[in-house]
Amino acid sequence: MDWNAFLLSLKLAGWTVAILLPLSVFIARHLAWRRYAGKAFVEAALALPLVLPPTVLGYYLLVGLGRASPIGQLYEGIFGGPLVFTFEGLLIASIIFNLPFAVQPMQRAFENISEEIRDAAACCGMTSWRKLWRIELPLAWPGLMTAFVLTFAHTIGEFGVVLMVGGSIPGETRTAAIAIYDRVQAFDNAAAGAMSALLLVISLIAIGIANLATSRAGARRG
């Protein structure tokens, strides 16, 4: 059992969720309630990671974040090292490939909050922040939970993009999914099996928690 890889997966999933979920709240609200030319294009671009082969996405991220790219050079200029094949590079890739998993459930949830409810909040004198905390987030809670679970589980399970952008550097970019693949390659089926079982249990627990939270929120609203 490669505990390092397992902990790295949890760390990557934790950071991805911590950065992507707040970001997605604003993207999802924007997409849910605004109408403008080109919105369909933005939505299609955000959904791309759902349909692109992970290796293709990984290839573009590798090129886009690599040492020859402006982003890679900027990063190297500030931090003195390359972005790809580091945990930070992996985190950026993870945020990008999880965008649709976080944004889409939230967008559906925000779309379900009627305009009258939002207008009523404004007429109550609420500031945007208070409206967000008191009304919008509680009402969109099931969508937020779904986004959380999908992002978390998808990050832990992602293989192709991680391999392309991060490689398999122990302690830095070798996640549990990569480690399982390595163990199978090394004919260490026992370790691969144990790690697979653990990931399975974690995924089940995450989905169970989300379902529980969602059904409670539903019961609360009647």
């Binding site: 009627s114 207008d119 007429c123 008191r134």
Partner: peptide, 11 residues
């Protein structure tokens, strides 16, 4: 403002 559907906060 009293809305047609009342727009009470359901939660």
């Amino acid at each position: 403002f009293v809305f047609q559907s009342y727009a009470l906060f359901p939660h």
